[in-house]
């Protein structure tokens, strides 16, 4: 399929969403709720992985969708709604990461709503680890190391690495979301991987 064919297909796929956005802009709460349902899992997944805290993820979810509701009228279809909502979420996550940096409250573990620690690695299904306890321990230790190393990145480096490595977004999209260029996003990613490797090497 050629480029224009793909673009048309994308447009056709997006048509129902555009209709929902228009209805929500006209004041339909039901249409806005439908948009929330469409994106809430992705928003929570990103916020939870970045902050490592259910409470923070919930706060980011709340604030992001309230902001989206308030400023939906400003959405002009110049970018995809996905990029627009991610831009709001990434900004809120960056604020949260910056606050945490200043408080120096690095959290290497995920904390649930009641404040109890969640062992993320224990919940990862990996048949190999069940058959090999040593390997499971290695994974656990490595998981802690990478979280510590991620915690040492600047909020922006952490965000670019998250969006590229874990969320698999294109650098161009990441640039759009973070209000910067693809080139800057590329350089930030390069810096982030370099720092991570250095931190991991120190820990060995």
């Amino acid at each position: 399929m050629n480029g224009s064919g793909r673009a048309q297909e994308r447009l056709r796929d997006r048509a129902p969403e555009m209709e929902l956005i228009r209805e929500a802009q006209a004041g339909s709460r039901a249409a806005f709720d439908a948009l929330v349902r469409q994106y809430e899992q992705q928003v929570l997944r990103l916020a939870l992985h970045l902050t490592g805290s259910e409470q923070d993820a919930e706060d980011i979810y709340q604030e992001a969708f309230l902001k989206a509701y308030r400023y939906l009228g400003n959405f002009r279809f110049e970018c995809s709604f996905y990029t627009w909502i991610y831009r709001i979420v990434t900004n809120l996550c960056l604020d949260q990461l910056r606050r945490r940096k200043t408080r120096r409250e690095e959290q290497a573990v995920v904390v649930d709503h009641s404040g109890d620690e969640i062992d993320l690695l224990a919940s990862v299904s990996d048949n190999r680890s069940f058959s090999n306890p040593e390997r499971e321990l290695d994974r656990k230790v490595l998981g802690q190391h990478i979280q510590e190393a991620l915690g040492k990145l600047t909020p922006r480096e952490r965000m670019v690495f998250e969006l590229k490595h874990y969320q698999g977004l294109r650098l161009r999209t990441i640039g759009e979301m973070l209000n910067t260029t693809e080139e800057t996003a590329k350089n930030t990613l390069f810096r982030a991987t370099k720092k991570l490797r250095a931190h991991l090497a120190e820990m060995r």
């Binding site: 929330v36 809430e40 899992q41 929570l44 997944r45 939870l48 992985h49 259910e54 993820a57 919930e58 979810y61 709340q62 649930d112 709503h113 993320l120 690695l121 919940s123 990862v124 994974r139 656990k140 490595l142 998981g143 190391h145 990478i146 979280q147 190393a149 991620l150 490595h165 874990y166 969320q167 991570l196 991991l200």
Partner: peptide, 19 residues
Amino acid sequence: AAACHPVLEPPANLTARAR
């Protein structure tokens, strides 16, 4: 190493509470 800190689906309770 990064694969040892995987992205997980948010718990259903969290989604329901946030919603």
